[in-house]
Amino acid sequence: MDLEEAYSTLGVTRDATNEHVVRKFRELSRVIHPDRGGDGQEMARLIEARDTLIEHLAPSSELVPVNAVVAIVEKTMERSSLAERVDRQIGEAKIEIRELSTSRLRRRRMLAGVFAAIAAAAMFLGSEVPDAIFSLQAGAQELVNLPQEQRDQERARIDAHKQQMKAMWSVGCFGVAIYGGIFAWFLSRRVERAEALVKDLEENISNKSTCFATLKKLLEHNIERDWTLIDLVSAIDDKHYELGHWGSLVHEVGSFKLASLITNTAVQLGLIKVREEFVDGEFSQRYSISVG
């Protein structure tokens, strides 16, 4: 990339200093960084423009080593940006895990409650249904030219059958209402257990030793090499049973959400380092252990 294109890409004037170039680079990268929905190729061009101008401006330094200053400023700003991004991703992952871990149970609980309410309403308000059914039969019987004695006997039989049907209707609706209520209560207990499980995960994963032990259990010997988020996702899919009671969350929230939470928490705790790469226009993040 030539100087003219570099100045145009960063949007700085020709009298800009190294500090101005770095500041402008950080400002633009916050917008077009792939983690914020930007384009990887545009980010690569931005990096190339920054490096071109810094290399061009470096010889103009007289009092201090500009490269050293630029490196310090850039490193500080990168750490600040990374910390902000990690904090945001941890917050988003926690919210999504909390919602996903209980959303299906909450929907089932709501349906069970509605079902129980409908059954209860049918028990108290639907007692006239048997009357509506048997009134037609009773009317049909009255059309038959029967002796009075037989007609009275038939009506008595129909009335007895109607009372029996009313009782069966009430008992059936009561049973459905009770079953729906118990099922809704059972689902409420499961929602509480799921919420407690997520809280336990968040608290324990925030501990350095527990977080590192979890990563080591999942990645095994691969933890000594560079790895990606997809590697950890695959490890969780294969070994979620080794996570104990946390493993049940995989079925509810998915391995990607758990991997994102564990990885970003490990970065926040300083357990792992992040290296961002642009290879053939593709952006990737690779992680490695930063503690012995």
Rank of each mutant, 00 (worst) to 15 (best):
L10G: 03
G11E: 12
D15R: 15
D15Y: 09
A16D: 08
A16E: 07
V21T: 06
F25P: 03
E27W: 03
V31I: 12
V31N: 07
I32A: 05
H33C: 01
R36F: 13
G37A: 10
D39M: 01
G40Q: 06
G40A: 15
Q41L: 11
S60P: 00
S60C: 06
L63G: 03
L63V: 09
V66Q: 09
N67E: 14
N67S: 13
V70P: 00
V70W: 08
S80W: 07
L82D: 06
E84S: 09
E92S: 13
R98E: 14
L100N: 14
S101Q: 12
S103L: 14
R104H: 06
L105R: 06
R106Y: 00
M110Q: 09
A120W: 07
A121Y: 01
F124I: 08
L125W: 02
E128P: 06
V129Q: 05
D131C: 02
I133L: 14
L136G: 04
Q137I: 08
Q141K: 09
E142I: 01
V144N: 07
P147M: 11
E154N: 09
I158N: 13
Q163P: 02
Q163N: 14
M165D: 06
A167L: 10
M168I: 09
W169F: 02
S170H: 14
C173W: 02
C173V: 03
G175W: 08
V176A: 14
I182V: 12
F183E: 03
F183K: 04
A184W: 00
E192K: 11
L197F: 01
D200P: 00
L201F: 04
S206G: 10
S206E: 10
T210D: 07
T210H: 11
T210I: 07
T210E: 12
T214G: 04
H221L: 07
I223K: 03
E224P: 00
R225I: 01
D226T: 01
W227F: 13
I230A: 11
D231Y: 14
D231M: 13
S234W: 04
D238P: 01
H240W: 02
L243M: 10
G244Q: 07
G247M: 09
G254T: 08
A259Q: 01
T265K: 13
V267D: 05
L269H: 10
G270C: 10
V279F: 09
I289M: 11
S290I: 01
